[in-house]
């Protein structure tokens, strides 16, 4: 500021007027300027309407004694913290995809059909950066079994590199047709992470798709598993969760909490 004359501190009546035009944050900062500003800027007279507007339900007059001694500026701070807690942005996941190996096994009652193990870095990312990955070069051949549906058992494990931890994303039974062009879709609800009680649903499911195509070179009667993709799907909006959300979910089960 290049003011040539010394500016005098605004008189209290001007402060009292301007205070009504300050937003809560500026009002809070202004309270820490000096003693007289603290008195002007922290008064209940100013903060009461602000509290009533922003957090009307924090103002319980019927509780009388218990809350009477909480100044309104503090009540606002409490409300602010509560609101912030709801929209808290989670920290970056400690896990990275490179720490993980995806292992997928598909078998019928009588025989093993395919076992795939893919390191995280070799997975094909979805362009939308969601936790859904295609596994390519599966290249597994098996006998075509006409149009008949076969009972299969599908297991999808995520292994933390160095076998430091394994989490079973899916272990389910289903039916699939081993015929060219057929697709199989499997999903299983994932457990709720962390210490929450079992009644709190996780809201996510593991999802796995299989695709078959015919294999000309091998002659009639053979099909190839040519497409496998896996992901974590939110049942709230039926969209795949973000890569970070997926990693944070896995982190709960694979990395011990250190705090």
């Amino acid at each position: 500021m290049s003011l040539n004359f010394p500016i005098t501190t605004p008189p209290w009546e001007v402060l009292a007027l301007v205070a009504h035009y300050l937003d809560p944050k500026t009002l809070a900062i202004a309270s820490c300027v000096c003693k007289s500003w603290f008195i002007s800027m922290s008064s209940d007279h100013l903060w009461k309407p602000i509290c009533n507007t922003h957090f009307p339900n924090l103002h319980f007059t019927d509780l009388g004694e218990q809350v009477r001694h909480v100044p309104y500026h503090r009540l606002y701070a409490i409300g602010h913290a509560a609101a912030k807690r709801r929209v808290q942005t989670p920290c970056k996941p400690k896990l990275s995809l490179n720490d993980l190996v995806f292992s997928i096994n598909i078998r019928t009652k009588s025989s093993n059909i395919v076992t795939i193990a893919k390191p995280g870095e070799e997975l094909i990312f979805d362009p939308n950066e969601v936790f859904k990955f295609d596994v390519d070069n599966v290249n597994y051949e098996c006998s075509s079994m006409a149009a008949a549906l076969q009972d299969v058992k599908i297991t999808w494990n995520v292994v933390l590199s160095g076998w430091k931890g394994v989490f079973t994303m899916m272990n389910c039974e289903g039916k699939v047709s081993f015929s060219p062009g057929a697709e199989g879709w499997f999903s299983e609800e994932l457990p709720s992470p962390g210490c929450c009680s079992g009644t709190v649903a996780s809201g996510v499911v593991a999802d796995l798709t299989l695709g078959f195509c015919s294999r000309r070179e091998s002659g009639v009667g053979k099909v190839k598993v040519d497409k496998v993709s896996v992901g974590i799907l939110s049942i709230v909006n039926w969209r795949y969760v973000s890569v970070d959300d997926g990693l944070r979910y896995l982190q709960h089960f694979l990395v011990p909490c250190d705090d």
Binding site: I29, R74, A77
Partner: peptide, 9 residues
């Protein structure tokens, strides 16, 4: 006071 208003800083 700054502690009290930490949220605003």
């Amino acid at each position: 006071y700054r502690e009290e208003y930490a949220w605003a800083f």
